[in-house]
Structures are given as structure tokens and as C-alpha cells.
Amino acid sequence: EQHESQKPDTKSLVRQMHEAYLKHFHMNKAKARVFLTGKTSTPPFVIHDMDTLQHAERKLHTQLLGNVASGDASSLQEREVEARLFLFCQYASVETVTELTEFAKAVPGFAALDLNDQVTLLKYGVYEALFALLASCMNKDGLLVARGGGFITREFLKSLRKPFSDMMEPKFQFAMRFNALELDDSDLALFVAAIICCGDRPGLSDVSHIERIQESIIHALRLQLLSNHPDNALLFPKLLQKLADLRQLVTEHAELVQEINKTEDASLHPLLQEIYRDMY
């Protein structure tokens, strides 16, 4: 394995994925930890109740909602708090899906795949990847939002009315277990690539091509973990287990979103609609 890790193609794959990750994701674990540990001159604004949420909406409007049309924005304040938070989540998700798409294209071999297979890999992979990345923005007390401008407390999210109160708690529980593995951004880059390039998504046409890409990423991930975490020999199998946990997390999340979509007056962004439709 010592010898294997010296192979230039694996080393360059590790480096390439790390660079693409830093290039395409505006937030990463190193940046998030600076905000979460208070080592910044501009600490995030803490959102812990309705008043602080309203204050944050005025203060962080662009970071929370991106370039939402001004008409939508002006009617937003009339909507209930749960619907507004659901909308912020959606905009953050759309942004991350866009970043993940660019990151996926940087995985060697991905762009050469049949376009239908690229669509399928993203459809099934983006939410698993999103929740893995979200863990970097979480600690036991809350979640960093609006590019580090805000911090929503876990208690406030739990205090929302049902079914919205059930939205984030499972992600916190996953994040606490996942963060205990102490991965850094160079590990996460390969982990996210492994999530996306997964040969057993439903309806893939060129499975063997995807499995070859997957194999090279998993191989690189194993060697990366051995060299970056030499004292934790079980990290690689533990991380493979997290892939299964993420799949379960997404299945439950998709069910909850379908329920909200059916029973609440909360419209779903067209990109997210595409992803959820006929998913599981």
C-alpha cells in the first residue's frame, strides 16, 4: 500500500478532486469551522426565535435567497415562518446542486459518460452529497447559513410546527456521527466524488464505465485515508457505512418533502421537483 500510494495517477486524482472541490464549493469545512469556532472578526448572526429570524431576513436577504425576483421577496414576509425557512433551504439546495454539477464534471471520466447516465448519477447523488457537505456547517447546537452570515439554532428548528420540525433533526444526528470521523476537505472531496460516481443507481446504461470511475475514486479514497489518518485504520470501512446511512437519510427526506408538497402551501423549486420526481 505504501508503494501503491506513490502511484502518480492516484496521487494526482486526490489532488485534482481536492482542487475541484475548493474551486466549486463556496463553503468548505475549513471555512465553516472558522465561523463555527468564533475565529472570525464577523461572527454569524444567531437566529434562535421569530424576532432574530426577521432581523436576519432583512440583514442577510441576498445570502439567504440569492437572486429571487423582487415580487417574490416582497410577498415573502406575509408567509408563515415555516414556509419562509423552507424556501431558504430550497435556495441553498439549488445552489449546492449547481456547485455539485460543476464538481461532478471535474471527476475524470464523468463528462465522457452518456448524458442520460450523467443526469441519473446527479439525480440520485446530489442529495446524499448535499447532506454529507451540510455536516461541515453543523455543530451540536446549530447550522451555519447564508455563507457564514447566520447561524440557526437546532432548538429553533426543532420548535417549528410539524412537519417542518422534523426536517433538520435527522441531519443533525447524522452530522454529529459523521463529524466524529474528523474528515478534512481533501478527504471529503473524494467522498463526495464517490457518492456521485455510484454504479448502482437505477436506470444506468453504462454500468461498467461508471464502476471503473468509482473504483479509481474508492481506491484513491482508501489510500488518502491511510495517509491522512494513519492512526484510524477503521476509517475507510466506517466511511463506506456512511454511504448507506446517507441513502437512508435521503429516502426519509424525500418522503418528508413529498408530504410537505402535498399538504402545505409551499411550492417546490423546479430543479428540486425534477430531482424528487420518480426518485424512490
Binding site: 448524458l115 443526469v119 441519473t120 446527479l122 436506470g203 430543479l271 425534477e274 430531482i275 420518480d278
Partner: peptide, 20 residues
């Protein structure tokens, strides 16, 4: 199939866009 792309027009467009 063709319908997969049609059902995922935005994803498809994101994939075909160059780096912005």
C-alpha cells in the same frame, strides 16, 4: 432514454453549461 433528459431539463442544462 430521451424522456429522461426531457424530465430533467434543468439538470441537463446545468450539465451542458460550461464553467461559469
Amino acid at each position: 432514454s430521451h424522456t429522461l433528459q426531457e424530465k430533467h431539463k434543468i439538470l441537463h442544462k446545468l450539465l451542458q453549461n460550461g464553467n461559469t
